[in-house]
Design a protein around this nucleic acid. Structure first.
Lengths: 268, 268
DNA sequence: CGATCAATTGAGCCGTCTCAATTTGGGTGG
DNA sequence: CCACCCAAATTGAGACGGCTCAATTGATCG
């Protein structure tokens, strides 16, 4: 986590969105960004994000598709449950949580997403969002409009295939989460969580051993099917045992092997 | 559940597969079926299955795509973890469970699939199956080869869109499962499970109030993140309280409203 | 008709939750 | 800049839900 990359080009002037801004509203929470500043072809994340594995020419075609970005301030929603789905989103910087909410208001966080990851892949069934997406810190997302993507599809089959792959990845990630929540003990879940985060940050070029949690103990607990107290106790215990060092939301991983052993099959 | 539909056409002669049959092997567990017998356009399930919502002409084009079926006897695998992905599958009759398996051999069942539902949507990331698919009863599945689907894609954009919708549905189903396993009490999980099954069977034209479980208590428990003993106790308790009637794997739902209240927000 | 596997039921234990009291840190206004 | 406030995190004590281990009954199938 730390500060996230804002990779390419010169920083654009921030244009207040005509759509999203209520004139005279208190604070700018959600703004769109000048089109000319957005380019998949020059974005540092294009080796990780939607264009992953696409030919150079195809990535350039994607520049046509992704013409807008949105800036979100911490705590702001990118979308809410029930809203119509018009696009999917790629995170350019920051981090975002996705959460379900049932009739009784009970919440379940289903993911903490980092730069390069795609949001909104649920909701394509009914063309209505089935979850909320909320920024954990100031963030920026690229917009991929569904209808424009479908128009471009015939000329860009690799995009369809890549989207399919990403959706498949989300399915198996979610299945893994079920496994974790369904059959691991609390300490195993938290260890697995830390390892997963560490690896994803490493893929973004950050240190896998030292990072800042952008989410609260309560959010971690909700995600893992635990209470915030249990999560807090586990952090303390891991620290006591010399596996990690924790200072509020700053985490240092001291013994990744021990964590790995804890998380998975300690029968190995 | 009960017996599942084998909807269209005259029953085909069973042709032993040259690929899957070891000559002289003990028992026929997996056989392919004559191509001419498979037709989306005449299949009863086409209003539920992959062709859902496609125009009549497009469904007819799908007849080109789906030229094979496989019969599986109870307990047989459609695919295993680690095998290359060549196709996705639609269930024509029977029922199939999908399960993950980690390095230590720990298993997590991620779904019990019924006719009209699609298998193999995970695994499209790495082109390698990340789960096992095992028939809970004698079953039949239609094969949709990925490469043939991609060749057909330009002429059949509605297929791409429908596949995308089904994958999205699987993502949100899986997220719901996380919510269930992560935050509901055992009785709520089982109630939700029964209601879900009841509804899906109703959509297939079966009675929502009387059905046969094709999976064991242990499999239900694994799926819901509970032990088989807990599941068994809950069945007994639900029966004692007059919510259901159970006789081994036969279930009768007596009070669907009470189950509904139990499963979700009983704060309502 | 035994053999085997699935399901039921009971007793006791353990892990995680609940409830509650402090502590810490960050932000705000005097 | 400091005092205050509020939210987040920590830590403890006790309760309880679901698990483990174990015995028994009930189906199914050679």
């Amino acid at each position: 986590m730390q500060q996230h990359p804002v990779p390419n080009t010169s920083l654009p002037a921030m244009l207040p969105s005509l759509v999203n801004m209520k004139p005279g509203s208190q604070m700018q929470k959600r703004t769109t960004v000048a089109p000319e500043s957005t380019r998949c072809s020059t974005c540092m994340l294009n080796a990780i994000c939607l264009p992953l594995g696409m030919a150079r020419d195809d990535v350039i075609k994607m520049d046509e598709l992704i013409k807008e970005r949105i800036r979100l301030t911490k705590g702001t929603a990118l979308y809410h449950l029930g809203e119509p789905v018009e696009a999917i989103y790629g995170i350019r910087s920051g981090s975002i949580k996705t959460q379900l909410e049932d009739a009784s208001g009970q919440v379940q966080i289903t993911g903490f997403l980092l730069p390069g990851e795609i949001l909104g892949l649920d909701g394509l069934m009914e063309n209505e969002h089935v979850s909320h997406a909320i920024a954990l810190e100031d963030s920026e997302v690229c917009i991929i409009r569904i209808d424009e993507m479908d128009q471009l599809a015939p000329q860009l089959p690799s995009l369809q295939i890549q989207l399919r792959r990403l959706m498949s990845k989300e399915i198996s990630r979610s299945h893994q989460l079920v496994m974790s929540v369904g059959s691991l003990r609390s300490e195993q879940r938290l260890a697995a969580f830390l390892i997963n985060l560490s690896q994803r940050l490493a893929a973004l070029g950050y240190s896998p051993y030292e990072f800042l949690l952008r989410m609260s103990r309560e959010e971690i607990g909700n995600f893992l099917g635990l209470t915030l107290e249990t999560v807090s106790r586990l952090f303390s215990r891991f620290a006591r045992e010399g596996l990690i060092r924790v200072q509020q939301r700053e985490v240092q991983i001291l013994d990744i092997n021990a964590l790995q052993a804890l998380s998975g099959s300690d029968c190995a």
